[in-house]
């Protein structure tokens, strides 16, 4: 019945382990973690603070060493960080001395080394317009508001045309109004690009609204997958119809019950 099952696996975590050595022996954040993410699937990972979900994401990104196990993208093990796994960081992490355009451009240059300057500019402008910054190309990143910075962060990630998009609590630092706005922006851009995405969050509504599947992680140490919810709401989604959908509360209940433990 599910169409998705026929599609190929884009990202796979095999028996992942993360341990930090301490004088009293290893502190194991995460052990025996398995995950398969299909192409064009949007997966959210939800769990309590400190359960190791951000650690997991940075390991997939290649920014954090893997203690044991492996991460495969298109069946090939990852080697360090790379633009095939674009990251939207929690703090936008823009270079404040560059303009919005330059911040996107610096990545695009790496990914499309043979494109002309004009083509690169067009790519950047396209994505910046998509996230609603059509009239802020040349504003310095330091002069942008937090919400606008994260818009640039989203544009920068999509402009890399990554195989996998990694979102590390992308809206965690925003106020609730801006968060809702940016969720709409994200789902808008994502619907067009359908890039395989993994998002870490602790916002239940956000997870349901954006994902095809929500992975619930048990609290660490020794965190692993506790439960999985398949969100079968039709796409493209709109906030209003999602909230009014009878299943929405069912999913919500499911997630909240898990998190209550």
């Amino acid at each position: 019945m599910e169409v998705l099952t026929e599609e190929k696996i884009m990202l796979e975590c095999r028996n992942l382990k993360k341990a930090y050595p301490t004088p009293k022996g290893d502190f194991v954040v995460l052990e025996g973690f398995n995950l398969e993410v299909k192409e064009k699937e949007f997966v959210s990972i939800i769990g309590h603070s400190g359960c190791g979900k951000s650690t997991l994401l940075t390991m997939i990104a290649g920014l954090n060493d893997i203690s044991k196990g492996s991460v495969l993208v298109s069946d090939a093990p990852i080697e360090g960080a790379g633009p095939d796994r674009a990251v939207v960081f929690q703090s936008p992490s823009l270079f404040p001395w560059m303009t919005a355009l330059e911040n996107v451009l610096i990545g695009v240059k790496q990914v499309f080394p043979h494109a002309t300057t004009n083509q690169r500019n067009e790519i950047c402008k396209y994505y910046l317009s998509k996230v609603g910054l059509a009239d802020s190309f040349n504003k310095k990143a330091r002069d942008l508001s937090q919400g606008m910075k994260q818009r640039v962060g989203i544009a920068r990630a999509f402009a890399l045309k990554p195989k996998v998009l990694l979102l590390d609590e992308p809206f965690g630092m925003l106020d609730s109004m801006t968060r809702v706005e940016l969720q709409d922006v994200l789902i808008d851009v994502w619907s067009k690009e359908k890039i395989t995405a993994i998002m870490v969050t602790h916002d239940v509504d956000e997870a349901i609204f954006l994902s095809d599947r929500v992975i619930m992680m048990t609290s660490g140490p020794y965190a692993k997958v506790g439960d999985v919810a398949h969100i079968k709401l039709e796409r493209p989604r709109e906030r209003k119809t999602v909230i009014e959908h009878p299943d929405f509360y069912k999913y919500r209940q499911h997630l909240l019950t898990f998190l209550d433990h």
């Binding site: 960080a81 992490s93 790496q110």
Partner: peptide, 20 residues
């Protein structure tokens, strides 16, 4: 954070030094 961005973008040594 800047260094992480630089790693994800795989900036070369030179652009890492001069641009970041």
């Amino acid at each position: 954070d800047y260094l992480n961005v630089s790693r994800v973008l795989r900036l070369g040594v030179m652009s890492n030094v001069f641009k970041v």
